[in-house]
Design a protein around this nucleic acid. Sequence first.
DNA 1: TGAAAATGTAACAGCACCTGTTACATTAGG
DNA 2: CCTAATGTAACAGGTGCTGTTACATTTTCA
Lengths: 171, 171
Amino acid sequence: MPSTQYASTLHVLILLAADQDSVHTSTSLAARMDTNPVVLRRIIADLSKAGLVTTRRGAGGGVSLANNPEDITLGQVADVIEADMTFDVHHVSDQTEADFLTDAALTAIEAQRRELHAASIVELDRITLRDIMQAATLRADLARLLADGLSDDQIRNGYRIEKGRLVAIDD
Amino acid sequence: MPSTQYASTLHVLILLAADQDSVHTSTSLAARMDTNPVVLRRIIADLSKAGLVTTRRGAGGGVSLANNPEDITLGQVADVIEADMTFDVHHVSDQTEADFLTDAALTAIEAQRRELHAASIVELDRITLRDIMQAATLRADLARLLADGLSDDQIRNGYRIEKGRLVAIDD
DNA sequence: TGAAAATGTAACAGCACCTGTTACATTAGG
DNA sequence: CCTAATGTAACAGGTGCTGTTACATTTTCA
């Protein structure tokens, strides 16, 4: 799957989940993700059809999450965009003479592909958007403090983790 | 992954495993798989480098399995050809202004990708080449008998399953 | 009511990747 | 020495994805 659609979709959802109070538009998201607004509208259209986000047209409109991040699993996201995450199976044109084993092998390989797909979705359903959003926000907070010149020790002693965010300790 | 390389590789291994006594060449395999011999030589070269098959050049040469089918897992096969089976992650060029969350999100998504990859290999390691080869040979035997005009009942009563093959019952 | 801002889509271009193909060097057997 | 096989390099063709332009539609706000 040389398609980056699933990763881009996750990226959008993380940005939406991490800041649910701001207005997000395809243009503002595109600037942050270094791509074109239309690319994002295509992604958002899929999410909207599946009910994961709501959109509002017109001035002041934009995109927002339809549900709480903890109620969306990565498996659902994969379903929405029909992401494959397995492998492609070649097909064999009608042979000159029947090769039963080749036909049977292709059927067995396709069955194996479906099994792997099911197992992948199960694996992805164990993670929620909240999980991956918190992993990202925590890391972003840390990078922000480091960019401000704070040392590891200063961060360790002056900040604590609360709901996946680094917050300053007042004392 | 719109590449059919993994499925083709499995296909080759199934054909080799199902008939280890015959000589298989890139040309004979290509005819059965409806593709070009060079495509198969590329696949075979990878398998050979990884030690899964042995090749012999020259007249009378060809390809054969290096190990027993029960000692080869589908996970090994995926490793050999560095099959991905996850998703691609987009990359963001150096931004005009730093977006810590976007950078952190990409890191989190990449971590998630590696987790899924590891889980997929674990899943694939549960299946051996023998397993999928037997699934294919059994189905091929059945299709062959049906093509010969036997009914389901005749097959049920006249044949039994032995080591993944349908064999006639002598009575 | 009109301008501005946003989504929703269609159409197309460019690029990258994959498969198939030709060609040829190398190796081995009879 | 001829034949048959692997091992590779080089290139062609197709396919699919991303990016882009363009425009219709919807909505808000002054």
